[in-house]
């Protein structure tokens, strides 16, 4: 029961979806399956919230190190959840102003929007912006031109870094743009690298990954790969 039913579900939904690609009569089945999948994906957000709750409640009850921050996590979690689900500060929907629950919770001016605009947005964007500092530090400490391969990597990176700014244009602007050597201008070189060398490398990677995904998928659908069920065998 614990292992057979999941295998049947996987195989059934897989066959339905693959068949629906090729036989129009089954197309509606495929659409249903993908719609169901999307709904489950939305429910998974609830699972995410629930897991967070579980982890931090345990941290607080065990008085683990930094449990005070867990209170901040849960406090902001519940506050955002409440203003979002209860639609606090939401103005009515102009088409149906007499229905209090029909307003737009994400519209500018609502409490939920406030949480997005003034906490979520600055925090997530600054966290990603921090990577600029770390990549600079890594550039100084880690990138060593020790061999030919490393030199190729760094040389390409230099051409791209220069070619994708005005510096590249400025450095080689003395090469006539209509002349036979225009391809040596740094901005042209960076285009050439992207469209030929990078395309070749990534194309090979794409082909390789596609084969890997197709074969793994087939093994999963046929029940040969059961690793997603956990527990070996």
């Amino acid at each position: 029961m614990k292992r057979t039913v999941p295998l049947i579900i996987t195989a059934t939904v897989g066959v339905v979806l693959i068949v629906s690609n090729f036989i129009p009569a089954f197309r509606a089945w495929g659409e249903e399956a993908t719609t169901f999948f999307s709904i489950i994906a939305a429910i998974a957000f609830v699972l995410g919230g629930g897991s967070l709750l579980k982890v931090h409640l345990r941290k607080i009850s065990d008085r683990n190190a930094g449990w005070g921050y867990s209170i901040v996590v849960l406090g902001t979690f519940f506050a955002t959840l409440a203003v979002g689900l209860l639609k606090i500060g939401v103005t009515p929907n102009p088409a149906f102003p007499d229905m209090p629950w029909a307003g737009d919770v994400q519209a500018r001016g609502t409490a939920f929007w406030w949480a997005y605009e003034y906490t979520f947005k600055p925090l997530t964007s600054t966290m990603f912006a921090m990577l600029a500092f770390y990549i600079a530090s890594a550039a100084f400490r880690a990138f060593r031109a020790k061999n030919l391969e490393a030199m190729l990597l760094l040389g390409t990176a230099f051409i791209i870094l220069l070619g994708r700014t005005f510096a590249g244009y400025w450095l080689t602007s003395w090469i006539p743009i209509d002349g036979p050597f225009s391809g040596l201008r740094i901005e042209e070189l960076s285009v050439y690298i992207m469209q030929v060398f990078n395309t070749a490398g990534n194309r090979a990677i794409i082909i390789g990954i596609a084969l890997g995904i197709a074969s793994t998928s087939l093994k999963i659908l046929m029940g040969l790969d059961r690793s997603y069920l956990g527990g070996g065998n």
Binding site: L52, V72, T76, F77, F78, Y116
Partner: peptide, 9 residues
């Protein structure tokens, strides 16, 4: 906290 609740809402 905010992002988990945001996605849920």
């Amino acid at each position: 906290g905010v992002s988990a609740a945001y996605w849920m809402v």
